[in-house]
Simulated scan of single mutants.
Amino acid sequence: MELTVLGATGGTGRQVVQQALEAGHSVTAVVRDPSRLPVTGAGLTVVTADVTDPESLLPALEGRDAAISALGPRGRKQARIAAAGTRAILSALDTCGVRRFAAVSAAPVGPLPEGEGVVARTVLIPLLWAVFRDVYTDLAAMEGEIRRSSADWTIVWPPRLTDKPVTGTYRRVGGGNVPHGRSISRADLAHALLAVLDEPTAGNRAWGLRTSRVGGRYATPAGRHRSVRDPGRPSVSCFRPVTGQLPRGRLSGGRVGVRGSRRP
């Protein structure tokens, strides 16, 4: 696959680039400062561009099969970058005829999951919105731009991000957040972003994610893929790496933080 990764120097973006290269994809990493991208390897092209300028993005998107955006502010002062950058990305995608697009949002921007605990509903989520309102408002605006576009899009709603290694085992809910979703590693988030690109049923839909207990109820045997449906709830899927098809390996990078801080 010819893949473009935007926001490639962030914690999640670096994971996407690394795992995509390991899976054999040709990757174009769009960055503002090439010195901040520690990933190297055959098949990697680094392009310096302004993500808010569609014309600047055209060389990085022309002839590509898909694009992944891990754009996000490094603090509340940069809270408008997600919507502005995504608007430019979508314009450039349309110009270049690239339809497949996946983007990272945040769990608090999505719907409150059925069965969520009282503390999360009444304390944690309202507190996150109070602290990171500008960031979440920006992400909500970004989602609006994506949903109104002509792209074949997928939005991912991760909870708090960690720097744990990739497992390929996580819960995924289509059209909603995962109940009791407290965290997921940036490596598994990157794994999920790459996985949805080849899934026909993942398009034009948002997906909630969270870490799954290894060896627990939702774990699957290594090298297998299984979907799980909970009665009365949105579709739930669980994944583990498949040799030669999905990325695998132990990766690290980025900073630990609440997804609301948008340090992807």
Rank of each mutant, 00 (worst) to 15 (best):
E2I: 07
L6E: 08
G7M: 10
Q19F: 14
Q19A: 15
A20M: 10
L21W: 10
G24E: 12
S26A: 15
V27N: 08
T28F: 06
R32I: 09
R32F: 11
S35D: 15
L37C: 11
V39R: 08
G41I: 12
L44C: 11
T45E: 15
D50Y: 11
T52N: 11
T52S: 13
S56R: 14
S56C: 11
P59S: 10
E62M: 08
A66C: 14
A67Y: 09
L71D: 05
G72K: 10
G72V: 08
R74H: 10
R80F: 08
I81V: 15
I81Q: 03
A82R: 04
G85L: 05
G85T: 03
G85Q: 03
T95Q: 09
C96S: 12
G97I: 02
V98E: 05
R99C: 01
R99Q: 09
R100Q: 09
V104C: 05
A106C: 07
A107R: 05
A107Y: 01
P108I: 00
G110M: 03
L112C: 01
P113L: 06
E114D: 12
G115R: 07
E116T: 02
E116I: 01
G117M: 05
A120E: 00
R121Y: 01
V123S: 00
P126M: 00
L127T: 10
L128H: 01
W129A: 00
R133Y: 00
R133G: 04
T137Q: 10
A140V: 06
A141S: 05
A141W: 02
E143F: 04
E143L: 03
R147K: 09
R147Y: 01
R148F: 01
R148Q: 09
S149E: 03
A151M: 07
A151P: 05
V156N: 06
P159T: 03
R160T: 14
R160C: 06
L161W: 00
T167V: 02
T167E: 07
G168N: 03
G168L: 04
R171N: 12
R171V: 04
V178Q: 04
H180Y: 11
G181I: 08
R186L: 12
A187V: 07
D188E: 04
L189V: 09
L193Q: 14
L197F: 13
D198C: 04
E199L: 14
P200T: 05
T201S: 13
A202V: 03
A202D: 10
R205F: 00
A206G: 13
A206K: 03
W207S: 01
L209H: 02
T211L: 00
R213K: 10
G216N: 05
R217A: 11
A219V: 05
P221T: 11
A222V: 13
G223R: 09
S227W: 13
V228S: 05
D230T: 15
V236L: 15
L246T: 15
P247I: 12
G249Q: 09
S252F: 06
G253D: 11
V256T: 12
V256M: 13
R259A: 13
S261R: 06
R262V: 11
P264T: 14
